[in-house]
Amino acid sequence: MKMRRGGLRRLAASGIGFFLAAAWSPGAEPTPLPFTAGVMFDHMSRTVVWEGETETSRVAVNCVSLRAGFDLGRGVTLGLSAGLALSDFDALAFLDLPISLELGSSVLKGVALAAEIEAVLLDLGDFEIGAAGRVVSSFGLARTWTLEDFAVPGRAEGRTNWMEASAAPRLAYHLSGGFVPYLEVAARWFRVDVRMKETLEDLQDAEKKRIKGDFSLSASLGGDIRLSDRLVVRAKAGIVPHAGGAGVSASLGLLFAF
C-alpha cells in the first residue's frame, strides 16, 4: 500500500494543474462556505528512530477519510474527519520475541480521526497571515498472520496506534478569487506504538515498539481551489526534512459546499 513515487509525482502534478487552472480563471473574492463535506486522501511519510534503536527507519501512512468543514466566523474554520488509515512501518522488526518477526510489505489498518482548525489572524491586502493546527489519531485494528512452516501452529497479531499533532503559521496570497495559495511551516509532533503478539502453541510473548514523541518541521504549499460555487479542491504538499532522509506530506480532497 506504500505510495509509489510515480503516484506522488502524478499527485503533485495534478495539484499544480489545479493551482494553475484556478489561478488563470477570473473569479470573485472568495465567499465563506458555511459547511463543506467531502472526501480526502492524505499521505504522510517521515523518518523516525524507534525507541531503543539508533538507526533511522521510515513510517508511511495513507489515509482516506470523510471530512466536514464548518465556518465558525471571523476567519476561523473547523474541520473534522474520520476514515481509514493504512500504516506502513518499513520492515519494522520485533527482535525480542522468541521468534523474531518483521513486518514485510504488510500494512496495519486503523480508524483515523482528525480535527483541524484554521484561522486568519491578519489581513494585509493581497497577503494574509494565519495559523493552522491539526490533530490526527489512528486507532489500530488488529491484523493477524498465520506463522507457517513451524512444527506447531502459530500466529502473530499486530496493532498500531499513532497520533500526530501539528501547528503552523500560514502565509496566504490572494492570487485570484478562486484560489488562495499558502505557504506554511509546521511543527509536527508524532507518537506511535506498534504492538505485536506472537503465539506458537504454548510459546507466547508480546513486544511493543514505540516512539514516544518525535518532533520535526515541515514546509508545505497548499490551497483551496474553488472549481465552482459548490465544488472545492483542497490540496497541499510538503516535505518533512530529517537527518537520514526527508519525508513527504501530501493531501488532496474534493469537498462540496452546502
Partner: peptide, 9 residues
C-alpha cells in the same frame, strides 16, 4: 528458522 526474523506478509 530459529534465529532469522520471520517476515510477515
Amino acid at each position: 528458522r530459529a534465529l532469522a526474523p520471520y517476515i510477515l506478509k
